[in-house]
Simulated assay, not measured.
Amino acid sequence: MMMTPGNDQWITIHYDGEPYKVPSGRTIVTALETAGVRFVRSVGCRGGVCGACTAFYRTPADAQLKSALMCQEQVVDGMSIMPMPFFPQNQMPYTLNLPAGVSPARQVMQLYPEVGGCIMCQECTRICPVGIDVMGYVGMIKRGDLKAAAEASFTCVQCQACAVRCPARISQPNAALAARRFYGAHVMNRADHLQKARDKAKSQEIQRGFRRLKRMDAEELKNLYQRREVEPAQSAPGTWLPEDTTLLG
């Protein structure tokens, strides 16, 4: 190991088959960028919610293949990483309109019938980088329980790692997305506050504000955005209110 003047400990990792000397204690993304890698693909939000930086990796201490979001996982000496920018999983076109006599649960199964072929190997759950019980929500879709499936898959980041490893060739992320959409459109109770917000957005007061924004040039919009009120990062939930409360329902 060599040390830099900044007291960083440097380790060796392999990314896409190439060795890189990187500082320890950093995420895969930031470590590789320190080593000069310029990401054009395979990086998105950097906050662990978009799934764009999914990768598979192995470490010398554990030969088991694992998956991770590279913006969240820290580098380990000897780590071997392969990014996965895209995987061609089944993605069916559909609208949220239901055919006559077809329930939302039945429609999801008609769109993704491969869900019925799950062999319960749990490889999808084991490989999920955000810890979702993928096999569990697949079973919920099979049973027609869209509410349970929507809740169980809610934190899915569409990274596709489960679909890559599935021996039954199920497109779990897309089936779960359809379950959430059809549950929200046809089963879930409507939220009163959202309807009030929609009605308010159509009011003359709000429409006048939109028209005023449309008349502004780019520099005016930029200055307005930079002067906006921003909720303090450390404020307790529900305690902060903006000075202008006219848009609050």
Rank of each mutant, 00 (worst) to 15 (best):
M2C: 00
G6A: 08
N7T: 00
N7I: 00
D16Q: 11
D16N: 13
D16Y: 03
V29D: 07
T30I: 08
L32I: 03
L32D: 02
A35K: 03
V37E: 10
V43Q: 08
G44A: 09
C45T: 07
Q64R: 15
K66L: 00
L69R: 09
D77R: 05
M79R: 01
S80Q: 11
F86E: 14
P93Q: 11
Y94W: 12
T95H: 07
N97Y: 02
P99M: 05
V102K: 10
Q107W: 04
Q110P: 00
L111W: 11
L111C: 06
Y112C: 05
Y112V: 12
G116D: 10
G117S: 07
C118R: 01
C124L: 11
P129Y: 01
P129I: 02
P129H: 02
V130L: 01
G131I: 00
I132H: 02
D133P: 03
G136Q: 07
Y137V: 00
G139E: 07
D145V: 02
L146T: 04
L146H: 03
A150E: 02
A163H: 04
C166I: 05
P167K: 05
P167M: 13
A176D: 06
A178N: 14
Y183H: 15
H186Q: 07
V187P: 02
R190E: 12
R198V: 14
R198T: 06
K200A: 12
K202C: 08
E205L: 12
E205H: 13
G209V: 10
R212S: 11
L213S: 15
R215N: 07
D217S: 15
D217M: 14
A218H: 11
A218L: 15
N223S: 12
N223Y: 03
R228M: 11
R228L: 10
E229A: 15
E231N: 15
P232K: 15
W240G: 12
